[in-house]
Every structure is written in C-alpha cells, then in structure tokens.
Design a binder for these strands. Structure first.
Length: 257
DNA sequence: ATGGCTTGAGTGTCAAGA
C-alpha cells in the first residue's frame, strides 16, 4: 500500500495537480489538507473518474481534510471526540485494515499568541484521543500537515527559527508525545538526502533557495512501521505552475498481513 | 521593516497561512 499526505492549499485550485500526481504515483491512499471548501463543492465526480473514492470533512474558506482511496473507506469519523472545535481539521477512516487519521494541525501564528494556546490544547486533545484509538486499531497511521518541524534537521536555518512558531520546544514536545504513543516518523526510518523539506514560503524565492521546513509527516504504529519499506518527499509538484506551498509525502507499506 | 506571496471572500481590501 502506498499512502500519502499533501496540503493542497485549496483543492479547487489544485485539483489538476492532484489528479496528475495520483496518475503518476498510483498512490492507494491520499490524505489532503486545506481543501478550503464545503462538501457540496467537493469534486467527487472527477476523483471517481480517476479511480478514487473520497470522504471529506470540510468548511468554507479555511481548513478542510479529505481521504482519497482506491478501495472502500469504512468507519469514517470526523474531528476529535470530546474536543469542542469549529475548525474542520481531522478525518479518520479504515482502509484495508489500516486506520488512517488525516490531520491538519493548527498553525499557531506566533509563540504566545491565542492561536498558539489553541494549537497546544488541540495537540494534547489529539494525542489523548489517539492513545485510545491505538487500542482499537493497532494498525494506525497519523499523517498530515503537523505544522511542527520536529528537530533542527527539519529547518533550513535553525538559528533563525529557534523558538519560533513551528519550531518551539512545546510544539516539539507535542510531536514527541505522538512518537511516545508508539508512532514512528516514517521519513526518519530511512536514510534521507540532507536539507529535504515539505514546505517552502511562496515569498522571497523560498523554494528556489530551498528555504524550507519539514512539517508534513507520516507517523506509523509499530506493526505498520515494521511493514514500511520506503518514505520520501516528492518535490516535483512544487515546481509546477501555481503550486501548493507544500509537497506531498509518501510511504510504502508491505502488503497487509 | 509585520513586509515579502497565495487563496478566498467579494469588488476594495483584508484575514490567514507558516
């Protein structure tokens, strides 16, 4: 199974890129973030024509998450149970025995801002929920836009970003809490090229200068980590006309036992 | 320097992203 995540920064704008990328990679599951649309606008028809069914938890203008799959999506669940939140950031479904949790984690704006407090509360609520979910679903993958660069290797200029939003110690501690639940960062299971990131600012030639951050992640529970044979970030779509500012991350899992 | 791009909203210009 090939499973991937991509913050598309508007599915309306990026649908052609998504369809091209699915055709090229033949991914089995693709999680999207920032669809920025209501359910009635979601392009089910175009995706079905490409061989993918989809579930979506969306809203107008902001946020919005979707899971695309070539096979059935079962036990679909939206949001974080028990955590009051108007923002559509979480969607889960079971695909071929694998529990897929797609997340668009809050940005936080700036360390100390109100949105930063919301981000930390949100991350704690998701971790609490996943601790329970892992009991129900030992084969679980948490993937999406984490808006956290886990360590300095994931930052183009660690000095400039030190203690800044996306890199602060409380955010990194929240990331480690997911890891401590038994979820492994698939990207770091393998040797990787240096200075490979998943997001680059649209401004100031961020991509051309490779001023990026690795903030999009695929985290695998123990049995899935054991079955993982590859994980990479695909920079190709970031080079297209009118790209998303994020690149997709893709992992390969051996055939399910 | 709170800027520098991009998107969605909505038609002038702002919020939000990261």
């Amino acid at each position: 199974m090939k499973i991937a995540t991509w913050n598309v920064n508007s599915l309306k704008v990026r649908l052609p890129h998504v369809l091209d990328w699915l055709a090229t990679t033949q991914a089995d599951v693709l999680c999207l973030q920032e669809t920025k649309m209501e359910e009635k606008a979601f392009p089910h028809g175009e995706l079905e024509a490409a061989g993918y069914r989809a579930v979506h938890n969306g809203q107008k203008t902001y946020n919005g998450v979707a899971i695309l799959a070539r096979t059935a999506l079962d036990e679909v669940a939206c949001d974080i149970p028990g955590f009051a939140d108007e923002q559509k950031r979480v969607l889960a479904a079971t695909v071929e025995g694998v529990r897929v949790v797609c997340a668009y984690m809050p940005n936080g704006q700036a360390v100390g801002a109100d949105k930063y407090g919301y981000k930390l509360r949100w991350l704690a609520a998701l971790a609490d929920h996943l601790r329970d979910e892992l009991q129900r679903f030992p084969k679980l993958v948490l993937l999406g836009d984490f808006n956290i660069a886990p360590d300095d290797r994931d930052v183009h200029d660690p000095e400039a970003w030190k203690d800044q939003i996306l890199c602060s110690e409380p955010e990194r501690a929240a990331f480690r809490r997911f890891v401590d639940l038994g979820l492994a960062d698939a990207f770091r299971l393998f040797e990787q090229p240096p200075k490979l990131y998943s997001w680059w600012d649209y401004r100031q030639m961020g991509f051309r200068l490779n001023r990026g951050l690795r903030i999009d992640h695929i985290l695998l529970s123990v049995p899935l980590a054991a079955a993982c044979t590859a994980c990479s970030i695909d920079k190709a779509p970031r080079k297209l006309e009118r790209p998303s500012d994020h690149a997709p991350v893709i992992a390969t899992l051996d055939a399910a036992p």
